[in-house]
């Protein structure tokens, strides 16, 4: 179904996008409150929490371009060296920018 991106239909379209996004923000909590969680469920969630991060990052690191790889490497090294997130992120972004200037 095609929808116009002008006037009223644009407003409805944006509201629909907002609602779908809100459903994802609320849905996880809602489902969890409906399902009783035993010790197993708790361990599942415990294991999942860090895994979301890694699952997001792994393809970025392995399949990303050289800029993405240098950025993540610099972030990791800076984090191990000084444990300051802002320093690490700045280092990562700069490394990505430099790598793309040099290699692309």
């Amino acid at each position: 179904m095609m929808i116009e991106t002008t006037g009223n239909s644009l407003i409805w379209l944006m509201l629909a996008m907002a609602l779908v996004t809100l459903a994802t923000r609320w849905g996880g909590v809602y489902v969890m409150s409906m399902v009783p969680i035993g010790p197993r469920g708790q361990r599942f969630i415990e294991g999942m929490s860090g895994s979301v991060l890694i699952a997001l990052l792994a393809p970025m690191a392995v399949k990303g371009d050289v800029g993405a790889q240098c950025g993540l490497l610099a972030t990791a090294l800076a984090m191990l060296a000084c444990r300051k997130p802002m320093v690490a992120i700045t280092a990562g972004v700069c490394a990505a920018a430099v790598a793309r200037q040099v290699f692309v």
Binding site: T5, V20, T24, R25, G28, V29, S33
Partner: peptide, 29 residues
């Protein structure tokens, strides 16, 4: 564009934001 495919758009938005579902679940405790 002048027109967008409604369901494809909403499905894409949902797929990209599905990670929020996991975030909510991990914070539930």
């Amino acid at each position: 564009g002048a027109q967008v495919p409604l369901f494809t758009l909403l499905a894409t938005v949902f797929a990209i934001n599905a990670r929020h579902l996991l975030m909510g679940a991990t914070l539930y405790p």
